[in-house]
Design a protein around this nucleic acid. Structure first.
Lengths: 248, 248
DNA sequence: CGCGCCTTTGATGATCATCAACACCAGTGG
DNA sequence: CCACTGGTGTTGATGATCATCAAAGGCGCG
C-alpha cells in the first residue's frame, strides 16, 4: 500500500538515515521487474540511475512524516514500512504497509498525508521530486505506469474501507492475513507461512481494532486450527475457512 | 468520490437510460471548469465533443454495476450518484458519492469494482473507453490531470479509512456533514445549509453505522443546536463544534 | 538475573447493533 | 375527501461485540 502524497521543493534529508550510492546499478535491481522502473527502457534506466540515491533505514526510523513537504519519492527495495495517520488526540490509523517493489509518492502531491516508518531494516531508492517530475513530464509511459499503480491503490483502499466499515473483528483479521499472503505471492515470496513484520498494535490500528481484540482473534483462529501462530508470523492451515470468513 | 474502475471493450448500453446529443456544446458545459475537461484547449474540446454522449438517469437507475466490464467513462454533469460495493451476504459499503464535475472511471481498469446508482435525476457525459483511451494516449496533459484527480481520490479514501477505523458514531456524522459541505463549496454551491440527496441508509452504509445510529446522532446534534435538521438536508448551526468533533 | 517491551488472558463495561413499534409523507384508489 | 399502503425516518428497549482496565506471561538483552 503506497497511498502517498508528494513534494514540491527539495527535501530536508530524512532525519537519521545513512546514504550510499547503490552498490550495483538499476539493471541488477532486485525489485526492478515489479517496480515502476519495469516500464523503462535500458537507456531510460541509465538516466534514472544518475538520479537515484540509495537510502537505508533501521527499525523504527521515519522515512517521512505526516504534514511534511514531500521533497522526494521512493522505491522500496527491501523491508517493510508502516504508512499511518495520526488524529490530534493520538488515535492512529495505519493506512497500509509498503513492501519491496512499492512506490511511495504516487499521488505526486506536495505535502505528506501519512507518515512512513520502517518496521525493520529498509532499503529504498530515493529520487528528488524535482528530478522525478521532470522525468515523468518527459516520459508519458512512466506517468501511465504511475497512474495504473494509483488505480490499484484506489482498489486496495476501497477494499480496506469495506473491511473497516462492514466486517467483524474475526473477518478483519482473516481478510488481513489473506491479503498479506496475496501481496507476498505477487512479489514472488509465495508460502503458506505469512510473515508478520508488524506488531499487534500495528495490525490493530490497520484494522480499526484494539491490540487485545487482534490478539484474541488470532488465538481464536489458532485454537480452531484455522491458522497456526509461529514466531514472526502465522501459518495458514485452513485457507478455505479463512476465505469463507473474509468473503469478498 | 469517484473511486472507480474502467473498461476495455464496448459497453452494453446502461439498462434503462435515455440518450441524447448534448443540447449545447462542451464550450458551454456547466461543469467544464471543474471537470477533467478544464485542461483541454478549445481545439481539443471540439475533438472531445464528437466523442461524448449525453446520458440521463432517473432516481434509482444504475449507471453501472459492480463486476461489469467497464466499457465507458463518465463526467457527472448534474445530480448525485452513490458508489457502493456489496458483500455476498448483502452487507453494503458506500464508497462515496459522485457530484457534478466528478469523473467516473479514473482508474482506467477493466472491471467495475463498485456500482454507481442515481440518487435523483442525473445527467452525465459518456465516453466509450476505446475513444477515451486513445485521447489519453494522445494527450499526456489529460493523463496528468486524471492522475492528479486519482491522487485526490486517494487522499479522500485515506480520510474515509481514518473515519471508519478510528472515529465514534457522532464524529463520523459530524465529519461527513463537513466533508459534504466542503465538496459543495469547491463546486461553487457554498452555503450553511447542506443538502443531503442520499437517504439515512446510504449515510449509514457510508459511515459504517446502522440507519438507527445515524438517525440518533443527527437528532442528538440537532438537540444540542449543533445542526438543524431541515427538509432535504441540514443547516450547520455550530460549525466550530462540528469541526471539534470531526477534528482531523 | 532482572528489566523493558510486547503479547496474551481475564473481568467488566460502553458503544453501537438489533429488534420492535410508531410517526410521517406521498401516492393511490375507493 | 379520506382511508390505505409502502417507503423512510425516528424513538425506545435490549443485547452483543468489542473496548477498556488490569495483570500476568514470554522473550530478548544488558
Amino acid at each position: 500500500m503506497l497511498v502517498e502524497t508528494s513534494a514540491r521543493d527539495d527535501e530536508t534529508p530524512a532525519p537519521t538515515c545513512r546514504q550510499a550510492r547503490p552498490e550495483n546499478g538499476c539493471a541488477e535491481c532486485k525489485v526492478r521487474p515489479i517496480s515502476v522502473c519495469s516500464v523503462l527502457t535500458p537507456t531510460e534506466l541509465d538516466e534514472l540511475e544518475t538520479l537515484g540515491q540509495r537510502l537505508t533505514l533501521d527499525k523504527g526510523q521515519t522515512l517521512f512524516g505526516q504534514g511534511e513537504p514531500a521533497g522526494a519519492v521512493y522505491n522500496v527495495i527491501d523491508g517493510t514500512l508502516r504508512l499511518s495517520r495520526l488524529l490530534p488526540d493520538g488515535r492512529r490509523q495505519v493506512m497500509g504497509f509498503a513492501l519491496p517493489g512499492d512506490f511511495l509518492g504516487l499521488a505526486l502531491q506536495d505535502v505528506r498525508s501519512v507518515s512512513a516508518e520502517a518496521l525493520g531494516p529498509v532499503r529504498t531508492c530515493r529520487f528528488a521530486r524535482k528530478d522525478f517530475d521532470a522525468l515523468v513530464e518527459a516520459k508519458p509511459h512512466l506517468l501511465r505506469s504511475l497512474h495504473e499503480r494509483a488505480g490499484h491503490e484506489l482498489a486496495l483502499a476501497q477494499e480496506q474501507m469495506l473491511l473497516l466499515g462492514r466486517r467483524t473483528a474475526e473477518e478483519k483479521v482473516a481478510a488481513f492475513l489473506l491479503g498479506l499472503r496475496d501481496r507476498y505471492a505477487r512479489t514472488g515470496r509465495s508460502s503458506v507461512t505469512v510473515e508478520l513484520p508488524m506488531g499487534r498494535q500495528d495490525m490493530a490500528d490497520h484494522l480499526g481494532l484494539t491490540i487485545e481484540t487482534v490478539s484474541r482473534m488470532l488465538t481464536r483462529l489458532d485454537r480452531a486450527h484455522t491458522i497456526l501462530i509461529v514466531p514472526g508470523g502465522v501459518r495458514l492451515v485452513d485457507v478455505e475457512r479463512l476465505e469463507q470468513l473474509a468473503a469478498t
